[in-house]
Design a protein around this nucleic acid. Sequence first.
DNA 1: AAGCAAGAAGGGAGCGCTCTCAGCAATGGG
DNA 2: CCCATTGCTGAGAGCGCTCCCTTCTTGCTT
Lengths: 341, 341
Amino acid sequence: MTEPSTQPRPTLEAVAARAGVSRATVSRVVNGGEGVREPLVERVRRAVDELGYVPNQAARSLVTRRHDAVAVVIAEPETRVFADPFFALQLRGISKELTAHDSQLVLLLTEGRDDHARVARYLAGGHVDGALVFSLHLDDPLPRLIHGVPTVYGGRPGWSDGSRGVVYVDCDNRGGAREAVRHLVGLGRTRVAHITGPLDQTSAVDRLDGFRDVMVDVDPRLIVESDFTPGGGEDAMRELLDRCPDVDAVFAANDLTAVGAMRVLREQGRRVPEDVAVIGFDDMLPFTEQADPPLTTVRQDIEEMGRLMARLLLRGLERGAAAGVPASVVLPTTLVRRVSA
Amino acid sequence: MTEPSTQPRPTLEAVAARAGVSRATVSRVVNGGEGVREPLVERVRRAVDELGYVPNQAARSLVTRRHDAVAVVIAEPETRVFADPFFALQLRGISKELTAHDSQLVLLLTEGRDDHARVARYLAGGHVDGALVFSLHLDDPLPRLIHGVPTVYGGRPGWSDGSRGVVYVDCDNRGGAREAVRHLVGLGRTRVAHITGPLDQTSAVDRLDGFRDVMVDVDPRLIVESDFTPGGGEDAMRELLDRCPDVDAVFAANDLTAVGAMRVLREQGRRVPEDVAVIGFDDMLPFTEQADPPLTTVRQDIEEMGRLMARLLLRGLERGAAAGVPASVVLPTTLVRRVSA
DNA sequence: AAGCAAGAAGGGAGCGCTCTCAGCAATGGG
DNA sequence: CCCATTGCTGAGAGCGCTCCCTTCTTGCTT
């Protein structure tokens, strides 16, 4: 482990002395060089290079009250966060956008239920310019705690209906679900089942609503609640086959669930898609492509959602408080036909 | 998006005034309360609560030169990072440990090859107290760039042999591989193949070395280079069956590769483990448990590795530069027997 | 050639905090 | 009873930077 370099880093003052100008001029050059004449700019630039000057962010923040940093809060309880690459992809999108704006990404993972206070305190502490918050459950106490911090939510928060000022980025869960189910119906399937996600999350609720939009008056036994995991998908599928042996299509609330469901179908000798057609949601590569059989699914552009969240937040940060807040964005989904349906 | 709260946050000064003490006393209380008499401590605490005072980290850092923040640098080129939950798990481990020490996690993802300079500049800029760096490839230029920043590496860096002062956390890749291969041999298998990872990573190299330790004088056609992905595992397995139809065991460099290999084996009508035994590496749940058949593999405690990296870094940070650097840690692995071998 | 405006550079205050050091109170020993 | 000693508390400097405001150029106009 390299030791912290012992020699003190050069300050603005040092650069100014070397370039033979004032601190203020160096500051101007470092921050874009507006209103400084060319020869001086050049001289200062050289001094900066020679000394290896890097601005002290703490000192800068102290006066500007900007931090060029954004917190990403992932409030997912426990393991699910990391069972699927969902957050990883969003993080990459966010990272790209933030990097382009010279902002840093401070990652806040909540560790269990009582950890909200810590996160709230951090956000309130003015360490970051804003926050991107994920995976809120319907009863999540976090939003109330982070009052005063510009925030964009990932996925529609459960309480957002009608709340002005709440900005979120989501995909068209309901529309995507409708398209999937219509596709199944178009295939001539009549006993179409739905394995839901955890219904304390709006994405799961919205997908269920989309299912219902098409399958009005559906046999309630064809709807089984599950939890977005492969194991949950297996259990749900077993229960489904038990209740309704005549099921001929399944719309699973996400790909992992669909994969679990397909495994059970195979176990029990049902062919996919001949006997039972299956559609997932997310298009989580490479799982969908390499599933057996390759999974038909509803694609959402996860990385783009991340990028968009960051962009919305940064835009909201740029313009003054008076300029009004950006509107939420709902991204379209596309049905990707493979083999399973 | 909630607007930034317009009212200025209370300062130490304000708390001091309210409590009727000096700034210095409030500072002492806020930082642990050493050497302040009880009644005053109490009064200050109350004032802090009433005002909702939160210290300004920028001001604090400016004078202490500590940031209570650690950078996590993930230098993985492109997509692989997020195809598997590896980093996610490490991140969780790191996050837990940092949280326990009131440190923040600043995530730096490099975007492509030319991005190193940006990361290096950030680290050199003294925004963080130290860095945790992942996924170095043999030719990675990053280490040379981040001189002067206390760093712990995730995984043995390729150039670390003999370099004093390089601290890393890794699992016993070589020993784990040996155990896996010995197990296959103990099963009576004689044509044991190895599908490697990308050989510009030490983990892949070490696992290959472990394989060779046991299989001295192995038929070179039984070693196929691959890339840690399921698709790569498929290709490698196909090639392997082509070259050596008599292969009766496969040690895959990681679980994803093993899953791909098993898929091809099934396709081609070979039974696992009867005809060909398969062992993976990582024990990446839930993939290994739910693979078909459940995968025998070498488990490494990924989250623990992350936690350990953070702990090592923080410990090195605590004691002064003179105290000597912590030693690298190599965690043991364990063979987890399931069905595939 | 003198006066003036506009633009460029410098001086200096101050962001909120920590930390050293001086001051003062309380305690105990001579 | 006084002084040394210890232990709290307060005053003040200063971390490195930005930004306001003043001063000095510079280039025009008249």
